[in-house]
């Protein structure tokens, strides 16, 4: 059973590999000019980060990331790409200097802020010493669910979660009603104003649509 002994080192390695993949994907997204490739890579980014959330035991965040990041936002970004062009404009190197500096400064500030945070699993940290400890003690007797976050969201704060879900659902419904469905939707209207009856793309129209050079 060497699996059990090496599990800590193994988890470290898994974390390093997953974070390295996130880094590679981030760099590739920043360098790429084809919007479709960027959308696909952002889907991969969401999948990897969701897997990483599971690896560090944040299961609820992983659920949200997988549903919203990998599923929903890929579809939404593709729909947005439908209304714009296929490739980004070529960049001007000097114009990127300002945002680059802002990113560097923000990163340094965030790293500086993590110095004050309590260590991982520190029993004296505010999150673990107050109500969190109570949850840890009474949770098993109340619900019998091994993961503590799940009963807190679904049981102790169940009505809170229900309200949040209702708000998000109503907001999504309102956006869908505003944008419309089918032949009266915004995208269809724009397309009809563009030119009279649009020819539906045949297979050859798709196949000769190679991406531009990067």
């Amino acid at each position: 059973m060497d699996d059990v002994i090496d599990v800590n080192i193994g988890m470290e390695m898994v974390n390093i590999v997953l974070l390295g993949m996130l880094f590679i994907v981030g760099i590739a997204i920043a360098r790429m000019r084809s919007l479709f490739g960027i959308v696909m890579l952002s889907g991969i980014y969401s999948l990897v980060s969701a897997a990483w959330y599971v690896a560090v035991d944040a299961v609820d965040v992983a659920f949200t990331e997988a549903a919203v990041g990998a599923g929903m936002s890929t579809a939404v970004l593709l729909g947005a790409m439908l209304l714009t062009s296929r490739t980004a404009k070529p960049e001007k190197p000097l114009k990127n200097l300002g945002p680059f500096l802002v990113c560097i400064v923000t990163g340094i500030l965030l790293i500086y802020a993590t110095v004050d945070l309590p260590g991982f699993g520190d029993p004296n940290s505010p999150a673990n010493s107050g109500v969190g400890l109570t949850y840890l003690q009474i949770n098993w007797h109340d619900t019998g669910i091994p993961n503590v976050v799940t009963p807190v969201l679904g049981s102790y704060r169940g009505f809170d979660t229900l309200g949040e879900t209702t708000v998000v659902f109503v907001a999504g419904l309102a956006v869908a009603l505003l944008l419309g469905f089918g032949e009266r939707s915004l995208a269809e209207t724009i397309r009809k104003e563009d030119k009279a009856p649009p020819p539906l793309p045949k297979d050859d129209a798709i196949s000769n649509e190679k991406e531009g050079k990067e």
């Binding site: 889907g43 999948l47 969701a50 659920f63 997988a66 549903a67 990998a70 599923g71 890929t74 579809a75 593709l78 729909g79 439908l82 469905f181 089918g182 032949e183 939707s185 995208a187 269809e188 539906l200 793309p201 798709i206």
Partner: peptide
């Protein structure tokens, strides 16, 4: 299992986008 479902739906959405140029 949830990831498998999401992956399936996302692939269907992408392929439908290519076939029809629209989700609608």
């Amino acid at each position: 299992i949830l990831y498998a479902l999401i992956n399936f739906v996302a692939t269907i959405a992408i392929l439908k986008f290519f076939r029809y140029r629209s989700f609608q």
